[in-house]
């Protein structure tokens, strides 16, 4: 019975090995919702301050689309700040990520205004918009619902909009939907996984 402690120790080590092995093999669990589309994400062309921009321009990078408007005081700055935080966490890897902010308020958001706005969160961010019909078509196919509603005389009209961010992988497929408010760490982790 001298061997009993050895057997116990070996069994424990083995179980621990299997446990850690299984954990390492376990697939990464995304914080956003994975979309398994085999087709490319819908392409479009909208205007930035430095010319036309299409998601297909960023093939090879991971592209994050977020829809909002610059008059938006809470949701949009929070999401853009979270995305900027994720870019900082990603470090050098962030050069492989392109954040595109699509304004659903073409009446008030000019490309120049958008450039200054998104640039204040991260200079690599791009802000785009188009005429009302163009923006409506882009938002519709990305499942982004938005509508104006009356604000107060001071605030002017406000816009309700879907606040999830859409992530397109390097091959141009829509891969991930990030819900509002998941924070920079989780966003960075998901983007890091897509960059592998």
């Amino acid at each position: 019975m001298k061997r009993l402690p050895i057997i116990l120790a070996v069994t424990t080590a083995l179980l621990a090995g299997v446990w850690f092995g299984a954990r390492a093999l376990r697939p990464y669990s995304f914080h956003g919702t994975i979309i398994q589309s085999p087709e490319p994400a819908p392409d479009f062309t909208l205007q930035s301050a430095s010319g036309p921009v299409s998601p297909s321009d960023f093939r090879g990078k991971v592209t994050v689309l977020f829809f909002g408007y610059t008059f938006c005081p809470d949701v949009c700055p929070t999401t853009l700040a979270d995305l900027a935080g994720a870019m900082r966490i990603l470090g050098d890897e962030a050069d492989e990520v392109q954040v595109v902010f699509v304004s659903v308020d073409p009446d008030r958001d000019t490309p120049e205004r958008l450039a200054e706005y998104v640039g204040s969160f991260d200079p690599r961010f791009v802000g785009v918009t188009g005429n009302e019909d163009e923006v409506a078509a882009v938002a519709a196919v990305y499942g982004i619902f938005y509508e104006k509603h009356e604000g107060t005389p001071a605030s002017g009209y406000l816009i309700d909009h879907t606040a999830s961010a859409m992530v397109i992988d390097r091959e141009g497929r829509l891969k991930l939907v990030l819900p509002f408010g998941i924070g920079p760490q989780d966003i960075a982790a998901d983007l890091h996984e897509l960059l592998k």
Binding site: P73, D74, V75, G151, A154, D160, A163, S164, F180
Partner: peptide
Amino acid sequence: CSVTELHEMYMKDGGVMGMRP
């Protein structure tokens, strides 16, 4: 601020968000 108001964000089922006084 030119004007200051108390607002809240609201979220409908599934992701549309808006702001209102």
